[in-house]
Design a protein around this nucleic acid. Structure first.
Lengths: 146, 146
DNA sequence: TATTGTTATACTCTATAACTATA
DNA sequence: TATAGTTATAGAGTATAACAATA
């Protein structure tokens, strides 16, 4: 079953958006769950790992913003990542209230693995012709001004 | 911050997929959370409502499949939707082990509202030219064979 | 015997409010 | 006073295993 309104006439942009949502639901999300599970991470833990900058680290508060959730929530997620030595909390020398989250070597490696496995395009995009794939990429670049 | 590998060269399909993921993360997900909250539904409850067929109803087991989760999980989600009289459990007359989930009038109305609010395309797609919007729609139709 | 859905259990995710330490 | 992060608490989401009813 689809979440699209079946009878309604949609504008081209609305229909494109609806089809992207369907692609995400049917292919992206199952892959996301599978890849997280393979690496023994809960989806929020995997998302936190992805959002952490591999070079600079970031304050708890910023990670909470990136995850669209409360800071008290991030405490628990980071606790579990820290238990597995995937991230470290380092007190910021300039503001000792702030804790910068830094990926460990192992955490950075796991993040690379995650990115690698998630970046493979799903079957409906792979089966498009080479021309169509380039056209789609160019349209997405234009939409997101890349 | 983006979850895209910054230095790697991506194939056109991989880059298109990466940009779609970014669009979903930056626009789709925040909207999804906001709309759910406005209607006083948790995200899983809202997703269950969307996946329920407004006309036919479906067994618990099928909803679990649609939500990519365990049946024991669906029991709790449906309990809460039933407490609010948004869905009903009806024993299937042909197989009395099966319970068919059927939207109530109020549940169907809430589902329509959800669909309506979620179908509006996000700003990056709206600002594309009319030609680009049609081209994007056509490519997505082709990918998903619509 | 096999299948559908529920219950029991344990853990994770989530937000709110109160708190500590620092600014 | 204000801000960063934690803790306490409560409720929701999640899977596994055991279970009852039905096939």
């Amino acid at each position: 079953m689809s979440t699209r309104p079946t009878s309604a006439r949609l504008s081209p942009a609305a229909e494109a958006w609806s089809l992207m949502t369907e692609l995400h639901q049917s292919y992206g999300k199952p892959r996301w769950f599978a890849v997280s599970a393979e690496l023994d991470l809960s989806p929020p833990q995997a998302m936190a790992l992805l959002r952490l900058d591999p070079d600079e680290g970031m304050p708890m508060r910023r990670l909470a913003g990136a995850l669209h959730c409360d800071t008290s929530n991030v405490t628990g997620i980071v606790d579990r990542l820290e238990d597995r030595a995937l991230v470290e909390r380092r007190t910021d020398p300039h503001d000792r209230r702030v804790k910068r989250l830094v990926l460990t070597e192992e955490g950075a490696e796991l993040r690379r693995l995650l990115l690698e496995r998630l970046s493979e395009p799903p079957e409906p995009l792979r089966r498009l012709s080479a021309d169509d794939q380039r056209a789609l990429r160019d349209l997405m670049r234009r939409a997101l001004r890349r």
